[in-house]
Design a protein around this nucleic acid. Sequence first.
DNA 1: GCGAAAAGTATGAT
DNA 2: TCAAGCATACTTTTCGC
Length: 363
Amino acid sequence: MSHIVVHVDMDYFYAAIEEREDPSLKGRPVVVCMYSGRGEHGGSVSTSNYTAREYGIKSGMPCSRAIKLNPDAVFLPVRKEFYTEVSDSIMEILRSHADNDESFEQISIDEAFIEVADNCNGDFECARKLGEGIKQKILEKEHLTCSVGVGPNKLIAKMASSENKPDGLTVISPHDVKQFLVDRTPSQLWGVGDVTTARLEQMGIKTVGQLASSDIVSLIDAFGKKKGSWLKKAAQGIDESPVRQREGSEQIGRIATLPENSSDYHLIMPVLDNLAGDVIRKVIERSVSFRQVTLIVITSDFKTQTRNHTLQRAVAEKEILRQHLDKLLTIFLEENKTDIRRIGVRVAGLQEVSSQTTLASYF
DNA sequence: GCGAAAAGTATGAT
DNA sequence: TCAAGCATACTTTTCGC
């Protein structure tokens, strides 16, 4: 049987939660910020509610710019752990509507796909009702709205959910896919960002329809084999990637802005040490160990560089992580003169810590 | 010179 | 002009034979 994918996207998630917690915020522009600690307003906008968006305030924008756009807006710092709790509760609802546990895929703190072809016996009208049911349940349980998209694959479902925001529900049946896509801009395709858009424009491709009928060879020429052929298929509404349960992220990282740009080990290492502690905490929580350690450096010219080390065996110890980061940083500072603006840690090559004792006591 | 692993970069969404 | 903190996919380089 063919697929029916439902994509659920929470509306202005962080800001909506803050509104819910403090009803006096409703109707006012609300901006949730990630502060860098550089001056009073240093940082970027994480999420803004729709009232704030009317003033042009949106994700990724410097907070200082948001203030200029509306000095009367309410600015709040992100409370990630709290939002994660709310997210977990919502994901539970979504998971319960999927065909089975394997047919649920959370892709971010506020978005997920579910496959419902079996539950709906291939019927898109049934999927619409299921989507309405999900919206209702989330509203009852968490007092939050979401936008839902239904489509024959993840790509179309994701784009459909963006179609009517906020609090929308859009169903695109296989028959509607071509019309749905043809007049869109390539940037509306999920996976096409600024860089890809600019290159397509250079090639004279301004609509998804044009992309769909453009020459695969020239696309591969410009974007490489994988991305080139993906673009052509996506433009035709074809996406075979399955909805699959993710076991949790493949990497765990933390990054922060230094109090000032610097190349001084004594200023940078303590910051790095704190980040390493955060990472280790998450590692322990997930009960995993890691084999790769990466130092992330963003220099004062905003270029990102990474330095990596692979361990002999997977570990989960703070001291070992610290040691390797220290070495990577020292080498980096020896080889580079540009000041550092932001510093980060990432571990990867994660493996489940097989708790032998637990297993043994179980049997 | 090969395939695999490691290292490093580009990209994207919130 | 001002620019956060994540994760993933992809590409290039190095390693082991």
